[in-house]
Design a protein around this nucleic acid. Structure first.
Lengths: 331, 331
DNA sequence: CTTCGGTTAGCATACGTATGCCCGGCATTG
DNA sequence: CAATGCCGGGCATACGTATGCTAACCGAAG
């Protein structure tokens, strides 16, 4: 292994000078810097992140905590977040939060992370409190939990849901069903509450038996749609907690031979690329997920570099995108 | 920050004893181990991976080099690989290989990785040689490059392609087009060669103008299909380099109003979950991607822990899965 | 009772980098 | 010409853990 000492020897300087020269410290003259840089490339040296992390007292690695890596939603989170972190000189390491028990926390802590992005926290998670106690900075992504204050980046579903409901109610839907996300996530709860309150303004309510809950995944939508559509008198419109759930519902309907939107309309939330496919054309609520993911990266880096700054909360607007899975209700 | 010294003080032992006790070294008595463990949990201590990495001389972090994180294919690689690595006590860090230039290599090296999985190497990549020169162990995943020997895990496309072609040729297809992957990837080349040689056995050849190439992504399939299907006399069957390309082609056909499989049959390769959706039903060549990804994790870990072992090459079989995008050619 | 062997734990140090502090040399100024 | 200040670089050391070597202690055997 090539160390800064080897470079120092070749350049005829001391090891600390190598460290300073390569980090562009003004205390080193240009001439020396050049000699050091040349020696470094000659030896193919690159500074050890391990040694550096130990000396500096923190690493440049931020953890992204997710539950379900297979979920295509996260692909669209990971990619931009990774790019932004890389641009800022940090790395992304993935962490799956399989359960909320102690070992998980230990595992999160044991990674030597300088910061964490929580993308799948439930409102009752203990992780935020533990991170705070350990002094590990973190950012809520697409979720929040009031219990512990921290930076957050979220989407405000109201505009999108309002527009969506105005439109579908305008086209005649009255009997509305829903497959919402888990009740113990802020995202699921917020979307559900927004739907309920806007429906209320229209003088409508969700029948208790037309409302299902489940994880934000394909199976939830697939099985949920089967449950709702198997009824004698199914809802004419099914609102889904997110696009992945809606895709499950859509495919379930297709498998059952239920025509969309002729027999039932289906709506999602997220506007994933897949939702725009010619074969899918899912009506959904859109927001800038790419930008949101980058913002989360920026926030956690800012927090790491300045731990005592005021918490920042970035909120992104949403809008309704009408496509081919919504139409007039069957008569 | 809580260090092993703090634990040592509380347990009334020395720091090295803490290190040994927590790593279950037989040189420490059971009684002492218990005292140390108790002290550790009391303080909420977990051993610093940074310090450990520095002392041991290597980290437990393996890098996964990919180009296109948005591509849904990689979601199905990352998830199982991550799980397996975690199980083996290693972590996964993502690295995007934006270009093949010098800085990229530096970037890869600079991460303090103990090993690397190359998932998107082109045959002419310099990365394998550089990794070898630096003594960083690596594994080819779904790709190879003869230039540098290393462990590899790949799929043998022959069985699947043979069965696929037997079936479609049996149902009457003669005019066959293709949207293959990049020619400078072993995966793309191998699939193309296999198709050509099996076609040859059937006395068929691909017309030069019916063959396109491009990156393994949605756009390649989308635009490729438009090119092929805009012809006056388009092929009756389009073979795609992988499923993501086929999904692009499928949606392109849908957008053009070309019926599948009535007017054109489309086939992919990979059998992603999406391909099985009721709304998609893509005919494709399947193999066990999940198991492959886990095997890559096992191989790189084995290589890291035993650098001088014989190179291992795991090859997975493929089979044809006929679904709804293939049928008799139009007449 | 002495000696030897085995077990258990401590001491010293290494890993690679960063940084506070000090020192030497040169230029500038009074 | 002397004193002061600044610049450039080196010395020493710290970060947290792991490990080779040594030391102490205990029991057993001679």
């Amino acid at each position: 292994m090539i160390t800064s000492r080897d470079v120092a020897r070749l350049a005829g300087v001391s090891q600390p000078t190598v460290s300073r020269a390569l980090r562009d410290d003004p205390k080193v003259s240009e001439a020396t810097k050049k000699r050091v840089r040349d020696a470094a490339v000659a030896l193919g040296y690159s500074t050890s992140p391990i040694g550096r992390a130990l000396a500096v007292g923190r690493s440049t690695r931020v953890g992204l905590v997710v539950t379900d890596l297979e979920n295509q939603f996260y692909g669209h989170v990971i990619a931009p977040m990774h790019r932004e972190l890389e641009r800022l000189g940090y790395e992304l390491v993935l962490i799956t939060e399989s359960s909320e028990s102690g070992p998980v926390t230990e595992h999160v802590m044991g990674h030597g992370l300088c910061g964490v992005v929580l993308a799948t926290t439930t409102v009752d998670s203990l992780l935020p409190a533990r991170l705070r106690d350990r002094g590990v900075p973190f950012v809520y992504f697409n979720r929040t939990a009031q219990s512990v204050r921290a930076d957050s980046v979220t989407v405000d579903p109201e505009a999108g849901i309002r527009e969506l409901l105005r439109e579908v109610i305008g086209s005649g839907h009255r009997r509305i069903g829903a497959i919402f996300g888990p009740r113990n996530t802020s995202t699921g709860e917020q979307r559900e509450n927004t739907v309920r309150s806007v429906l209320d303004e229209h003088g409508l309510t969700l029948a208790h038996r037309d409302v299902l809950h489940g994880p934000f995944d394909f199976a939830t939508g697939f099985e949920g749609a089967r449950t709702l559509l198997d009824r004698e008198d199914p809802p004419t419109l099914v609102l889904c907690g997110n696009d992945v759930v809606a895709l499950g519902a859509l495919n379930s309907a297709a498998e059952m031979g239920v025509a969309v939107p002729a027999q039932v309309s289906i709506v999602g939330f997220d506007d994933l690329p897949t939702s725009g496919w010619a074969l899918i054309r899912l009506s959904t609520v859109a927001y800038d997920l790419d930008e949101m993911s980058r913002e989360a990266a920026r926030l956690i880096v800012a927090r790491v570099e300045q731990p005592d700054a005021q918490p920042r909360h970035t909120v992104y607007p949403s809008r309704y995108v009408a496509r081919a899975t919504t139409g007039s209700p069957r008569t």
